[in-house]
């Protein structure tokens, strides 16, 4: 068949566009690899000097002496994350059940936009709220009952602020999971005489358990990487916190706080880039795992 030049031109345009867009798609796929590799190259010089294990378990952080122990910062991150999940999870599960199983449509119409707004508030504004409200509350009202003195800038303050930051994420995922469970299952349980709550307890929650786990993993990885809000309220002392009223120094805060001087000391920048690499790898794995579980759930119930 013979095409006119105009048709050839159109086909050429089509195939050119296809190649450009394929290129961009592959680029977007490679982005994660590029980020990982470049952080690895930047941090390789410290990995030549010290072993990864000695860096992770070392507890003294004296950059000017060349001592880089990440242990206090890892513990700071774990404390803050654990507190935030501990606070956020029960509240989010209850709220999501209420919104998806009990609430009247007009209540949803009011609540969903508000949760959207909560999700949109920038981290730094959460930090401002933490300084204005949470920190004074802890140092004046809460801490005196338990310890002699706390400035309020503590892992607890970080945990509370983080808890509220990760709530919209957990709620939106949980509601999606609950919505994916077929109505027939609920109807079967209700028709056997179970109450609404019994149906939730024995059918909805049980069926959505993998999804809930995936939601928690996503929330943990979000909490791991949150920087500015935590940096503003945690106190930033490089010691392992002993109680929730002690200040802590999570990894992201360490990176953010020291970028200014990191070029002035040998290996300092490399150490901070290693911290970024650790965050990146952990969060990458957590995210990929939970997203794969979530898409599986979506597909299974969609069929």
């Amino acid at each position: 068949m013979i095409f006119g030049t105009h048709t050839k031109y159109r086909v050429f345009k089509d195939s050119l566009a296809r190649r450009i867009m394929l290129g961009l798609t592959v680029f977007s796929l490679l982005l994660a690899v590029i980020v990982g590799l470049s952080l690895y190259f930047k941090s390789s010089s410290i990995l030549h000097e010290h072993s990864l294990w000695s860096l992770l378990s070392g507890s003294s952080w004296r950059p000017f002496k060349g001592e880089f122990g990440f242990y206090p910062f890892i513990m700071g991150t774990l404390w803050v994350t654990a507190i935030s999940i501990f606070i956020a999870l029960p509240l989010c599960i209850l709220t999501s059940i209420f919104l998806s199983e009990y609430a009247h449509p007009y209540i949803k119409k009011i609540v969903f936009p508000l949760i959207d707004i909560l999700a949109g508030i920038p981290p730094v504004v959460y930090g401002v709220w933490g300084i204005l409200v949470v920190v004074p509350f802890i140092s004046e009202k809460l801490a005196p009952h338990f310890v002699e003195f706390s400035s309020g800038y503590s892992v607890l303050a970080g945990g509370i602020v983080l808890a509220i930051m990760i709530m919209p994420l957990i709620i939106s995922i949980l509601i999606e999971i609950f919505a994916a469970i077929p109505k027939e299952l609920r109807d079967a349980s209700l028709s056997l005489g179970a109450t609404n709550w019994q149906t939730v307890k024995f059918v909805v929650l049980r069926k959505s358990l993998p999804g809930i786990v995936a939601a928690i993993v996503l929330a943990v990885s979000r909490a791991f990487g949150e920087t500015i809000a935590v940096l503003m309220v945690c106190g930033n002392m490089s010691a392992v916190p002993k109680s929730v009223f002690d200040s802590g120094y999570p990894l992201p805060a360490l990176i953010a706080n020291n970028y200014g001087e990191m070029m002035s000391l040998p290996l300092y920048d490399s150490a901070l880039m290693l911290a970024a690499l650790i965050l990146f790898v952990i969060i990458l794995i957590f995210n990929a795992a939970s997203r794969i579980i979530l898409t599986r759930i979506e597909r299974r119930f969609a069929l």
Partner: peptide, 28 residues
């Protein structure tokens, strides 16, 4: 599928990591 997954995963990467990555590019 893999593009969607990678967009989801990249969405979860904290901004401090992008900042550090951008910084290392700029140093380079």
């Amino acid at each position: 599928d893999i593009t969607r997954l990678s967009a989801d995963v990249l969405f979860g990467i904290p901004s401090i990591v992008y900042g550090a990555f951008g910084f290392s590019l700029m140093v380079y």
